[in-house]
Design a binder for these strands. Structure first.
Length: 812
RNA sequence: GCGGAUGUGGCGAAAUUGGCAGACGCGCUGGAUUUAGGUUCCAGUUCCCGCAAGGGAGUGUAGGUUCAAGUCCUAUCAUCCGCACCA
């Protein structure tokens, strides 16, 4: 057959059309339990759908297709993000009717991903935007409410005055709105719903031990920091002239005799009674000044309240101050300042001339009167009454006991992790199924009335309150308890709620009685492999771990962790920045596909770097991939049905060996590391050799090679692979054919190449049969012409020999 | 400041268990095909000296362990990421 030019357009269109309605996307029934892989949809900041597709699908596809060939049945559903609205895009969130938008989106996603991707099981698809999904979000919310895990309180929220909306924590970038980088976020007090994730803080921390090895260390560390457990002591300082004491939290109670003042956070509730109008104004100014600033840039300042408090251990009277560096959100919002042993306290107290009193000395030295040396260090406690002379750790223990005994404090643990605020003042999202009744208070919507569905037409006011408030037929309801007129909750849920359990729903997507059948989930879970972007390391991945534990506690599931293994993909960056639509630096993988075709586009992205690494997007290298696919295609077409094959010869052995070496390499890389870049490069090596040896390859090996080439290429370049598969006279999809196995015997070289070093430097190489004995190797090495000159006139001290690999001669 | 990672050619990168540094690709150089350009094919391409054979240096920097270090240890610098007056 004459050589055909590689026309990617023609090939891709042809198969694109044929695959439109093919049923081989469906998972095959399998007698053994398949692996459960979940591929999170968008590993990149939302808005980067373009690039998200190609990179994520590539990895997902390549894996899924490969696993399929190996006889696995991979559950590979669409992730929630695919249908979910970009949560941060308030404009769209408030304008589009969700249902239509969703359906439109599904349609377009189906189209796009047919082009780029392959193996989705549409039966299991779930849209988090569908009322059916609201229902189970709401169901979970009610279960948590019953258990006291969902509660309502007034809380400060981030507020962007330009967007006129509430922002989630993750949408606040360096104190400013993520869309208006010059606009500091304000704090507003609103009634909000919270989930008590803090109840699970210790479990979330402890269970990480199960995840070690399966999850990247980086993610585990980030989670550990985010939860931020610290052990310490809470102690009450009696406030003079008041019955309410001031409670402080410290991790270093052993330094408490060095506490020379108390400092309250400017937002501390006690300030309302403690301060005069002037003082309150100053405190408020501090809070405002802090908004939108990098904490490191703010100079510490504060003022004396005029009041004193009593150190419960020493009985010493210390002044009470207000300080701008004390955070209300951590510990108790009040600290004892120990300027001798804490850098921040030192800075503050030096500025205002407050006494500095060292109380910790090094184990092997005297008390250091220059306090700067001792910040944060442990040692021996001094000048501390009955505790003097104890080691820090022991002092802490005894002082904790003492506090408890005397009733003024106790050992305490605080967390950086805060309860999860899920209220959003948005149209978009799952309505929170609660009703506010003037008589009965907050009443849950009865389970049989779920789902509470969003109204279709909503006018956007931009007033910064939920647009749902303006829809009377939604808001005005009868109280389920007393039947009197009441108001519906108008906040909707954070979309992270959806993402926290979507993969459970995949196991039983059409269940209309429960979120899912526990038996089905028990069959699939835990997830064998979860794949997603790093940026979800703390939020999504902590929330979904929390959900899993909550679901276990309400008896739905038995596993404590959602996923055994986690793989975090690197991000695609452009010119050093994360790609995002708002930055306008999304470079089109579409354009790449337009010019070279989807096969080249996908393969190029896979070839650029291993998947866990972030990759700077530039398309200079794409030519090489396109050339390569052309080389393959032309090679195959001109060798199909050729009449003039030579008789079997040396070349056959050579290329068959290379073929099996390639198969071995790809199979191993695929199975363990997912380093597709090295897989691809080894196929390239094979093809390079095929070009060099083409004339000498006889008919039979050529047949084998062409077929294996199609199979090996299929995960990376499905269209060309399929086309070749058909040209070779095969029927049906190449993906249904089992993955080719390799023969280790055929992959073996005839002779071992043994490297000869003199003093660790490469001087020669000898070729010997495998298993040549040590003595013989050493003799051959010394006799080698290239090696000899380096041995002349020298004395051989030692020879190290690694059989079949290396001889190192040490000379003097 | 704390925590985590990463540093290898002009570029993306490879080297999986301490054993040939730079596979594969881009780019570049030369050659063949071509009226020419493009395409395709072949060869070369870490740096320095050399026409060449060959030799020397070389994985951010400085030490160390080892017959042998990109890989292990110590220190240090740079970059990136995460958290950040967290008491």
């Amino acid at each position: 057959m004459p050589e055909k030019p590689y026309d990617h357009n023609q090939i891709e269109l042809k198969w694109h059309e044929r695959w439109q309605n093919a049923d081989f996307y469906k998972a095959e029934e399998n007698s053994t339990k398949p692996k459960f892989y979940v591929l999170e949809m968008l590993p990149y900041p939302s808005g980067t759908l373009h690039i998200g597709h190609i990179r994520n699908y590539s990895i997902g596809d390549a894996l899924a297709r490969y696993k399929w060939m190996r006889g696995f049945n991979v559950l590979h559903p669409m992730g929630w993000d695919a249908f979910g609205l970009p949560a941060e895009n308030a404009a769209i969130a408030n304008q589009r009717p969700p249902r239509e938008w969703t359906q439109q989106n599904i349609a377009s996603m189906k189209k796009t991903h047919r082009r780029f991707a392959f193996s989705y099981d549409w039966d299991r698809e779930v849209s988090t935007c569908e009322p059916e999904y609201y229902r189970w979000n709401q169901w979970f919310f009610l279960k948590m409410f019953e258990r006291g895990l969902a509660y309502r309180k007034k809380a400060l929220v981030n507020w962007c005055p330009k967007c006129v909306t509430v922002l989630a924590n993750e949408q606040v970038v360096e104190g400013c709105c993520w869309r208006h980088e010059d606009t500091p976020v304000e704090q507003r007090a609103l009634e909000q719903w919270f989930l008590k994730i803090t109840d699970y803080a210790d479990q979330l921390l402890d269970d990480m031990r199960q995840l070690e090895g399966g999850w990247p260390d980086r993610v585990l560390t980030m989670q550990r920091n985010w939860i931020g457990r610290s052990e310490g002591t809470e102690a009450d300082f009696a406030l003079e002239g008041s019955k309410t004491p001031i409670r402080v939290f410290t991790t270093r109670v052993d330094t408490i005799f060095g506490a020379t003042c108390l400092i309250l956070a400017p937002e501390h509730p006690l300030n309302e009674t403690l301060l005069d109008a002037n003082g309150q104004a100053r405190a408020k100014a501090m809070v405002d000044a802090r908004a939108g600033r990098d904490p490191g840039d703010i100079e510490k300042e504060g003022f004396f309240t005029g009041r004193y408090a009593v150190n419960p251990y020493s009985g010493e009277k210390v002044p009470v101050w207000v300080g701008n560096f004390v955070l209300m959100g951590y510990g108790t919002g009040a600290i004892m300042a120990v300027p001798a042993h804490d850098e921040r306290d030192f800075e503050f107290c030096t500025k205002y001339g407050i006494t500095i009193r060292p109380v910790i000395r090094p184990v092997d030295g005297p008390l250091d009167t220059n306090p700067k040396q001792a910040f944060g260090e442990y040692g021996i406690v001094e000048n501390s009454g009955r505790w003097s002379g104890l080691a820090s750790e022991e002092a802490r223990r005894q002082m904790n006991d003492y506090a408890e005994e005397k009733g003024f404090g106790k050992a305490a643990i605080t967390y950086r992790l805060k309860d999860w605020g899920i209220s959003r003042q948005r149209y978009w999202g799952t309505p929170i199924p609660m009703i506010h009744c003037p008589k009965c208070g907050v009443v849950p919507v009865p389970e049989d009335q779920l789902p509470v569905v969003l109204p279709d037409r909503v006018e956007i006011t931009g007033a910064g309150r939920s647009p749902l408030e303006n829809v009377p037929e939604f808001v005005n309801v009868k109280c389920p308890k007393c039947g009197e007129p009441a108001k519906r909750e108008t906040d909707t849920m954070d979309t992270f709620m959806d993402s926290s359990w979507y993969f459970y729903r995949y196991c039983d997507a059409h269940n209309d009685r429960m979120p899912f059948d526990p038996a089905k989930v028990a069959y699939w879970f835990e997830i064998d492999q979860y794949i997603g972007g790093v940026e979800h390391a703390i939020l999504h991945l902590i929330y979904s771990r929390f959900f899993t534990k909550m679901m276990r506690d309400i008896g739905l599931i038995t596993n404590s962790e959602p996923a055994r293994r986690l793989f975090t993909q690197g991000m695609v960056i452009a010119e050093g920045a994360k790609m995002s639509k708002s930055k306008g630096n999304v470079v089109g993988a579409d354009m790449l596909a337009e010019k070279y075709g989807a096969d080249t586009a996908r393969m190029f992205v896979l070839f650029a770097a291993p998947p866990e690494k972030e990759v700077d997007w530039r398309w200079e290298g794409a030519d090489g991939i396109y050339r390569f696919l052309g080389r393959v295609y032309r090679f195959v077409t001109r060798n199909i049905g050729r009449a003039d094959f030579p008789p079997p010869g040396d070349a056959d052995r050579k290329v068959i060996r290379k073929l099996h070496q390639t198969l071995k390499k790809i199979t191993e890389d695929f199975e363990t590391r997912w380093h597709f870049n090295t897989c691809i490069s080894s196929v390239m090596e094979l093809v390079n050799m095929l070009y060099a040896e083409e004339k000498g390859i006889s008919a039979e090996p050529m047949c084998e090679i062409l077929e294996k080439l199609a199979l090996v290429l299929a995960p990376f370049a499905p269209y060309v692979a399929q086309e070749i598969w058909e040209e070779l006279g095969n029927q049906g999809p190449v993906f249904r054919h089992p993955w080719p196995s390799f023969d280790p015997e055929l992959a073996k070289e005839d002779l071992a190449e043994v490297v000869v070093q003199v003093n660790g430097k490469l001087r020669g190489r000898i070729h010997v049969p495998f298993g040549t004995p040590k003595e013989e190797l050493e003799a051959l090495a010394q006799a080698d012409d290239k090696v000899k000159p380096f041995l002349e006139g020298k004395q051989i001290v030692k020879i190290i020999t690694v059989p079949d690999k290396l001889v190192n001669i040490v000379v003097k």
